[in-house]
Design a protein around this nucleic acid. Structure first.
Length: 860
RNA sequence: GCCGAAGUGGCGGAAUUGGCAGACGCGCUGGACUCAAAAUCCAGUACGGUUCACCCCGUGUGGGGGUUCGACUCCCCCCUUCGGCACCA
């Protein structure tokens, strides 16, 4: 008789639902654990088999930890803003809210069908105004904050205003000079503009990545995702909201070293932040007193080899340094470069550029060097200008060859030195009247030249980051409105009555301009700003999809609070997240943005931890049966609904965990699902006989010593494997146990019962059903996890291998802890061993207790 | 090009500290049950050799070298695959 999963699974899902089995109490004495899944974007396609992989893994951990006596927080929700629903609305005119609600209903049904132990009373939805009220509130916290480099933390902007009123910028490193008197005299507009330069959320006119097909701008991090799908992205200057994530570059980098995250993910974040140490060096413009160009270099030790300079086409000095005769060539070059995306600029292998006609003076050699403009220099990095050292930089070398510029060798490299050596070495040809680097290794030469530059006021050591500020606005309808009003005097005011809800639109076509469709809701857009009484226009850009997922893990802690985004005491009790599981595709985007918001909230005193996600793991991609990526066009997509209908949720769960290590990429196998389905049926038949009663073998009498021992080994291994997320080997161990138990004449009832508990985290429906059949009336969810007896893990007798010259020649069974002397005696008496030892000289004897004897004999 | 991860039977994969390579599952082969099939159960299954009946022997964890009584495991060199970054000065 087979187990009737079609009846059993819905029965227990309803039971858990109705009894609130997995409701997480906030007031509770048990130790707390917070286990989080990355919440899904509820797409129209429904659940994918990749989703249950991570969700089952966390579910097993949660069910296990509940049985180990923990109070487990395990919630689920919906990251439901996003472009697909809006694009669908453009085609059909069906409101994105309608499609979103439908998709959520499908996802919820599919997830519930898997028997996952979520506390559904904590479900969140980023598109719910009661949720995005707090996303907007956090936006305003960020807007109303600035980064104080002295404290290395964000502070309320009001504190900056107080400081400016009392002492100006006297104590503010890096700020423009301003006295308290100046501040007092400033107009509302001037103060507003000055503060904007400090705020962590600000509007800037910068070249952004505009996608005409999508009708929106994209963050640098997002561009690759869309261009891969065939969309084109162009560079255009536009006014956009930015978040000053660069202020946190150092902390995002250094705090990462304490995270228990996959090495590749940490590496990607480090690369994205891209910290490099170097120097900023000032080159005076020849014949133009008081004018100078700053460059950033990581190799100040090669300064004597800088034979020309290159400015990015967008550099502010291009115009003034270009001589009259060079203009006809320069202007079209810069215009063309500004339209290209960074990707396109990189695509052209040939170096291009235009000479400005001007020269700057190399502070080390005192020689004038020509200033060029070339698009291989990026405006957004460093100072947007470089000193070119063609002898020791590949790119500069290519450029120098193309334009016949002089190359000078200033580093003596080791072996393999070509015409352009970019490694470290010893400085040569690097001396002037005041300083000499000759003979110094790179690290020392750097230190010395920086010290010298500092002394003469021509440079200083600096640190640069690749990380750029986060482009935060999107020209979309289906996103959180940014709660800002633009007043008629050109200032901005925050809109504090939250939530600021999206207006109802009749049509969802793009506005036709570069504004979002919200611009068409004129009644909503044009208002009187209440604090100033001025005419105002609402911000029509909305937030990017990442906004809602930056803090959802905090909302689960206190999902219905309408006074605060999350109660302080509850936050302290539950954070940080013990383990977070989700896709590796979020390595830089979501995981970097969430860390950033979390740190701002920490600085402003709203949360208690530096980092939200202590431990992170990714589930590996599940490939199609043909070992290729699943896709509709390949026709190899597996639908979880079909698998559950055919084999049940327990089989799907078990198979996804049995396929291989959680983090690896692995192919689907229908035969493999059948395999675990067979296993579950074996379990059923172990307990239940053909007439549906408890099998007679569960009656009285003790288990054999072997089965007893195997049981204790199984409890130990399964528990350890769950804690280490090695679900595949845990399942393998349970299979071994069931195989043996099926052969046994007697399986004592208490042992059989305990095994049900061991199986329960993996196949909870089957386990609950068996538990009930065994006479229990309560769910097994909070039964204590079985305890193994360490003394029962090993047999009294143990097999020891006997080797000659490291090769296994025989085996023997001896009592545990047989002495080395005795083992050696047994080995030398073994008939097989004697065949190899006979007539030869034993050179060495290695005896390891409970393991082996190895006799090393001479050749002859 | 740079960085990261990984290479084990026909397939997915297993192997605490260096100590029986291939657990467990899939597939395959043979058998039992059956009129037959499905389901289930039993036996076998790394490759090669041998007087394939029993034993036994050799080879084998991407390739080459090294350390060691002993290496999938540690060290050096190389190759391949996957992922990320890619004019970041």
């Amino acid at each position: 008789m087979k187990f009737d999963f079609r009846a059993i699974e819905p029965k227990w899902q309803q039971h858990w639902d109705r009894s609130g089995t997995f409701r997480t109490p906030d007031e509770d004495q048990r130790p707390r654990i917070y286990v989080l899944d990355m919440f899904p974007y509820p797409s129209g396609a429904g659940l994918h088999v990749g989703h249950p992989e991570g969700y089952t893994a966390t579910d097993i951990v949660c069910r296990y930890l509940r049985m180990k006596g923990f109070n487990v927080l395990h919630p689920m929700g919906w990251d439901a803003f996003g472009l697909p629903a809006e694009r669908y609305a453009m085609q059909t005119n069906i409101h994105p809210r309608t499609t979103t609600e439908e998709n959520i209903a499908t996802f919820r049904r599919q997830i519930k069908m898997l028997g996952l132990s979520y506390d559904w009373s904590r479900e969140v939805n980023t598109t719910d105004p009661a949720y995005y009220k707090w996303t907007q509130w956090i936006f305003l916290q960020i807007y109303n904050a600035w980064y104080d480099p002295r404290k290395n933390a964000a502070r309320p902007i009001a504190e900056l205003e107080l400081e400016l009123a009392s002492s100006g910028t006297a104590q503010l490193p890096g700020a423009p000079t301003l006295t308290a008197g100046d501040w007092a005299k400033m107009t509302r507009k001037d103060r507003h503009d000055l503060l904007a330069g400090f705020r962590l959320a600000y509007v800037a006119e910068i070249p952004v990545n505009w996608c005409q097909e999508l009708g929106t701008v994209l963050a640098n991090e997002e561009v690759a995702d869309w261009t891969e799908k065939g969309y084109t992205v162009e560079r255009r200057p536009m006014k956009q909201w930015m978040m000053r994530i660069t202020s946190y570059a150092d902390r995002l980098l250094s705090d990462a070293s304490n995270l228990d995250w996959p090495a590749s993910t940490l590496e990607q974040q480090r690369n994205w932040i891209g910290r490099s140490e170097g120097a900023e060096i000032t080159f005076p413009v020849k014949g133009l007193a008081g004018s100078a160009v700053n460059v950033f270099t990581t190799r100040p030790d090669t300064l004597f080899g800088a034979t020309y300079m290159v400015l990015a086409p967008e550099h502010s000095l291009v115009d003034s340094l270009t001589t009259q005769d060079r203009r006809p060539e320069m202007e079209p070059y810069c215009r063309a470069a500004s339209l290209k995306s960074e990707m396109e600029r990189g695509a052209g292998k040939e170096k291009t550029g235009v000479f400005t006609g001007s020269y700057v003076v190399n502070p080390a050699t005192r020689e004038p060097i020509p200033v060029w403009v070339a698009d291989y220099v990026l405006s957004g990095y460093g100072t947007g200008a470089i000193m070119a050292v063609p002898g020791h930089d590949k790119r500069d070398h290519e450029f120098a060859i193309a334009f016949k510029l002089p190359v000078r060798k200033v580093i003596e490299g080791g072996q393999g030195e070509g015409e352009c050596f970019s490694g470290e070495g010893v400085a040569v040809n690097s001396m002037n009247a005041e300083v000499t680097l000759d003979g110094l290794p790179t690290a020392e030469a750097k230190r010395l030249v920086i010290a010298w530059l500092q002394k003469i006021g021509a440079g200083k050591a600096t640190v640069q980051f690749k990380l750029r500020d986060w482009l935060f606005s999107r020209q979309r309808y289906w996103g959180e409105p940014i709660p800002i009003v633009h007043c008629e005097d050109g200032t901005m005011e925050t809109w504090d009555t939250l939530p600021l809800e999206l207006p109802v639109l009749e049509r969802f076509q793009p506005s036709g301009t570069t504004e979002s469709p919200l611009a068409l809701a004129t009644d909503w857009v044009n208002i009187v700003e209440p604090k100033t009484g001025m005419k105002g226009r609402r911000e029509t850009n909305t937030m990017p999809q990442w906004a809602g997922s930056c803090w959802y893990y905090l909302r689960y802690i206190d999902p219905t609070n309408d006074i605060r985004f999350c109660d302080r005491a509850k936050e302290r009790q539950w954070m940080p997240i013990t383990i977070y599981i989700g896709g590796a595709e979020h390595a830089v985007l979501h995981l970097m943005y969430a860390r950033f918001w979390h740190k701002v909230l920490y600085d402003l005193g709203h949360v208690s931890t530096h980092e939200p996600f202590k431990k992170l793991r990714h589930q590996g991609t599940i490939l199609g049966e043909d070992s290729r990526k699943m896709s509709k066009s390949r026709g190899n997509v597996v639908n979880p609904d079909d698998v559950v209908r055919e084999y049940g949720a327990d089989s799907l769960r078990l198979f996804e965990m049995f396929m291989g290590p959680l983090e690896e990429m692995k192919p689907w196998s229908t035969k493999g699902v059948e395999g675990v389905y067979r296993f579950l049926n074996r379990v059923w038949r172990l307990y239940i006989d053909d007439s549906g009663n408890i099998d007679a073998r569960l009656g009285g009498g003790p288990a054999s010593a072997d089965l007893q021992r195997l049981f204790h080994q199984t409890v130990k291994k399964v528990g350890e494997d769950i804690e280490a997320l090695r679900f595949n080997t845990a399942i393998s161990q349970m299979m071994i146990f069931v195989n043996e138990a099926m052969k046994a004449e007697r399986v004592p009832r208490d042992l059989a019962q305990s095994f049900v508990l061991v199986l329960a985290p993996f196949a909870p429906h089957l386990a609950e059903e068996l538990w009930e059949k065994l006479g229990h009336t309560e769910s097994l969810s909070f039964e204590p996890w079985p305890v193994f007896d360490p003394t029962q893990l090993t047999a009294d007798d143990i097999e020891v291998i006997l080797q000659v010259n490291g090769k296994v020649r025989s085996k023997t069974t001896v009592p545990m802890n047989t002495t080395e002397v005795e083992l050696e005696r047994i080995a030398l008496a073994d008939a097989q061993i004697l065949r190899y030892v006979d007539g030869k000289r034993i050179v060495k004897k290695i005896v390891v207790r409970n393991k082996l004897v190895n006799l090393v004999v001479s050749k002859d």
